[in-house]
């Protein structure tokens, strides 16, 4: 059974008018990710990448079609079951500087998922171990977000997401707000933790180079429609759709 299964899926922020006009934000999406798989979603701003990520973790409703996570139909979950599901799916956001409460010390920030989803207060040792898993030290627990660099914060965001031992990690442009010098580090960390923890990962990016380095399959989104999908090597080395070719050219121009 697939870990994430999306069938005939449509979404609109204004579903009633979408049913009349047939204009959807996301239109007829079909794809699945096996347990332990690494899927990349590529496309420009406005293509619907982030909307899709929000659908997958239940932050936006399912308008039409089916989204199954771990065998559960997202559309038919009760509020209680949704909370259980949240533990299994965790998110990393684009801008790490904006995904931490500036008034909270890091230790408190990263204990939040455990507090709210597992209803317990994690020990300092547990938190220190979390930071160690992303190459940071226990002393960082007492720091405030503004005292840390973007790269460090993004690693902490990864640690926070993994604190509740999710099976699925959704990463929405996790490298694009980072300096070039640490983008690779964040990407590598996600790839290595996925291997180690047998995670299913969905990585969203506008940059084909980023997605191409780590994922094993890719879907290319344009205006809410999948224009190309397949094994990463095939899509990257032999793109068929004109839009994928355009994305590849754009990434090649600035590659070294």
């Amino acid at each position: 059974m697939s870990h994430i299964d999306v069938k005939n899926f449509y979404f609109s922020y204004a579903p009633r008018s979408a049913r009349e006009t047939g204009i959807w934000t996301l239109s007829n999406l079909n794809f699945s990710v096996e347990a332990g798989g690494f899927l990349g979603i590529v496309g420009e701003s406005g293509s619907g990448k982030s909307t899709l990520i929000r659908n997958l973790c239940g932050l936006l409703p399912i308008t039409e079609g089916h989204v199954h996570i771990d065998g559960c139909n997202l559309a038919s979950l009760s509020a209680r079951e949704m909370i259980d599901l949240r533990r299994k799916i965790q998110l990393i956001y684009q801008n790490p500087k904006r995904s931490f409460d500036p008034r909270m010390r890091i230790g408190r920030s990263i204990s939040q998922p455990i507090r709210s989803l597992e209803k317990r207060a994690p020990s300092d040792e547990e938190l220190a171990n979390l930071l160690a898993s992303v190459g940071l030290q226990a002393e960082h627990l007492n720091r405030f977000p503004h005292e840390l660099s973007g790269g460090q914060l993004q690693r902490i965001a990864i640690a926070r997401a993994l604190s509740v031992r999710p099976g699925i990690l959704l990463a929405d442009e996790p490298t694009s707000a980072l300096d070039v010098s640490v983008q690779a580090q964040a990407l590598k960390m996600i790839a290595e933790l996925r291997e180690q923890l047998k995670l299913t990962v969905v990585l969203v990016s506008h940059d084909l180079a980023v997605v191409g380095r780590v994922t094993d399959s890719i879907i290319v989104l344009k205006d809410g429609v999948i224009v190309e999908a397949g094994n990463t090597a095939n899509v990257l080395l032999n793109p068929q759709h004109a839009y994928t070719q355009k994305l590849a050219e754009a990434a090649a121009v600035v590659s070294l």
Binding site: V180, L187, V210, T232, A233, L236, L237
Partner: peptide
């Protein structure tokens, strides 16, 4: 070395962190 460039062959694609 830190530049993430577009993979150009099978070896550079995926998983080769």
């Amino acid at each position: 070395a830190a530049n993430i460039s577009l993979p150009r062959n099978e070896i550079e694609v995926a998983g080769n962190t």
